[in-house]
Design a protein around this nucleic acid. Structure first.
Length: 563
RNA sequence: GCGCUCGUAGCUCAGUCGGACAGAGCAUCGGUUUCCGGUACCGAAGGCCGGGGGUUCGAAUCCUCCCGAGCGCACCA
């Protein structure tokens, strides 16, 4: 409908003459009911261009539009206020839309803006050094939902998890496991005391690395290693078996956590392969050929000052080991070489200083960095009552994503992370989430869905059934009209959310749907009305159920038949 | 010091391309049930959109300065 009006409007403006060809014809849904179903500010904006009174331009344009427009689609074209042109839909248009919605069923909401294009969404990407934290949860759920949204708008989507398994972090992890293992093998081994950031101290084996991982899970992994190998690893120098055991155990746990949230990756990419395949070296060579590197103090630097940064950045350390940035660039290069049309990275706010380097390097290496889209989200602050909860992967006292899911459930976890803009800091009060989870908006949506299921079941019990020839034109009550309009906005809502990479549009929209349904439900009976009307209303209820179900599906949240 | 994000009702937050009187949930107060799920619905109250200046017919939205919060500014990831 929007497209249709845009086209008609464009034709009228062409006839008018003097309107620049690149003039952007925009239509929007007005905030207020009395301003119609769609409105355009065209005349207002033409006022200064044509040096004429906006109001009289609007009158002229509206007059011409009335002659052009199909009356079975548009009921009225009116000029209002300082020069807005307001459109009102013909009711037949709504009835046709409703019939289409019902016919489409569980695919209603799909659009084809991304058809024929492939997208790679990279998310989670936590290094396997410990269980996923609440912060990772926001990343995971955002990325997964953006991937869903892109699928619904026609993209062929690949979900990918990238991790660094070649650097210092994993080495420290392996050393931590080894130290615990050694303590298991020889029970009277020496210990030492480590002082943490918050001045508390902890007793660890003497060989434990200074910045080692203190979580209990490290001890568990060490015990597994011991069960498998006995004391035989004590004599080997290699950290390999310890790193492998740790990586496997931790990854298994991470995958389990993701599965609980309905998240399944299509592929995993890791840093080690980039080294093995020589791709990291290729990047270093490429950047050097471009004249953007130099050596100093035994390290290789990237001239990030040429991109407007205050200082240059190290690509390869004195030790000969690349910083994480270098394989990151190589990784992004592989994304381009796999031919994706769109690449989305989901990062926490702490990465915002680093990714421009990657994009600039990609640009220098001859790729179109505009195809990479970074979604940055602000941190999750976890509080328990008034007590802030620390989230350090090192320390043992952080709350894991699994803990959170245990406490509030999968649906609430996903919904909570999705209902707010990625740009805002998320205050997650565990106490509140547990005690008052009944008040969480997700229950409002699920309740509306369950209620519809129940109503439809009841209608079927008394003999009504789905009939594609149902006379939908009987739906003329204001709450029926309002609900239909709300439901038909669904594909557009998904498209907007996908385009803006803004999953939170969807929960907001679904709340409006649930409210519109509840109002309809309150004022329009089904059972007890005359058959034709009852059947028409049953179809409208079914349509509302479809939209709620599809919307919740996009969010990765269940739509229960009963609660 | 520099950069990024944010500042909207008592609280948590929406506000899509700059549009018409600034929106929702929670909390507070009041009302609604002979009827399909009351975990619902309706209403009231609550605002200098952090502050100043600017652009515009029109600014919560864009520009600029200031104030405040979070996060960065590593040969850690």
């Amino acid at each position: 409908m929007k497209d249709y009006l845009q086209t008609q409007l464009r034709h009228v403006l062409d006839d008018l003459g003097d309107v620049p060809d690149d003039f952007d014809v925009s239509l929007e849904a007005p905030a207020r009911e009395e301003h119609g179903d769609l409105a355009t500010n065209t005349a207002l904006r033409l006022g200064s261009i044509l040096e004429d009174n906006p109001r009289s331009i609007a009158e002229t344009v509206a007059e011409k539009l009335r002659e052009r427009v199909d009356p079975t689609r548009i009921k009225s074209v009116e000029v209002a206020g300082p020069g807005f042109i307001n459109f009102r839909f013909a009711q037949d248009y709504l009835f046709e839309g409703l019939a289409d919605l019902l016919a489409e069923g569980e695919t209603f909401g799909h659009s084809d803006g991304g058809a024929g294009q492939s997208a790679l969404v990279e998310y989670v990407s936590a290094n396997p050094t410990g269980p996923l934290t609440v912060g990772h949860g926001r990343n995971a759920v955002l990325g997964d939902t953006i991937a869903n949204l892109l699928e619904w708008t026609g993209y062929d989507v690949t979900r990918e998890y990238y991790f660094n398994d070649a650097g210092r972090q994993m080495r420290v992890l392996a050393q931590s496991v080894r130290a615990r293992y050694e303590a298991i093998v020889s029970e009277d081994a020496a210990t030492k005391t480590i002082t943490l950031d918050d001045d508390t101290t902890v007793e660890v084996p003497a060989s434990f690395p200074e910045d080692g991982y203190l979580g209990e899970y490290i001890v568990d992994i060490a015990e597994q290693v011991y069960d498998e190998h006995g004391a035989s690893l004590l004599t080997t120098e290699s950290l390999g078996p310890f790193q492998e055991a740790a990586e496997a155990a931790i990854f298994a746990e991470i995958e389990g956590t993701l599965q609980r949230l309905n998240i399944e990756m299509d592929s995993y990419a890791n840093e080690q392969e980039l080294h093995d395949d020589g791709l990291v070296q290729d990047v270093i060579d490429g950047l050097t050929e471009a004249g953007l590197t130099y050596e100093e103090n035994g390290a290789l630097w990237l001239k990030t000052t040429e991109f407007g940064k205050e200082q240059d950045t190290v690509l390869v350390k004195q030790s000969g080991e690349p910083t994480y940035r270098t394989p990151d660039i190589a990784y992004h290069k592989t994304k381009f070489e796999r031919g994706f049309d769109l690449m989305i990275d989901v990062f926490g706010a702490d990465h915002h200083a680093a990714y421009p380097d990657v994009l600039n390097a990609i640009d220098v290496l001859g790729y179109d960095k505009e195809k990479v889209n970074v979604v940055l989200y602000q941190f999750v602050t976890l509080v328990r009552g008034d007590e802030p909860v620390k989230m350090s992967t090192r320390r043992a006292n952080y709350v894991t994503l699994d803990d959170l899911i245990d406490q509030v459930g999968e649906d609430v976890t996903r919904f909570f992370f999705l209902m707010r803009s990625p740009d805002t800091h998320l205050n997650f009060d565990l106490e509140l989430a547990q005690e008052e989870s009944e008040k969480n908006p997700v229950f409002y949506l699920q309740y509306a869905h369950a209620r519809i299921c129940s109503v439809i079941d009841k209608a079927e019990e008394v003999g009504f059934s789905y009939d594609e020839d149902a006379d939908l034109s009987l739906l003329t009550h204001e709450d029926e009209i309002a609900l239909m309009k709300e439901l038909l906005r669904f594909p557009r809502a998904l498209q907007n959310a996908a385009d803006a990479r803004a999953p939170h549009f969807v929960p907001n929209y679904l709340r409006d749907v649930a409210t519109a349904f509840s109002q309809f439900y309150d004022n329009c009976q089904i059972i007890g009305e005359e058959d034709d009307l009852a059947i028409a209303r049953m179809h409208l209820a079914l349509a509302a159920k479809t939209v709620l179900k599809n919307g919740l599906t996009v969010l990765g949240i269940s739509a229960p038949r009963s609660m």
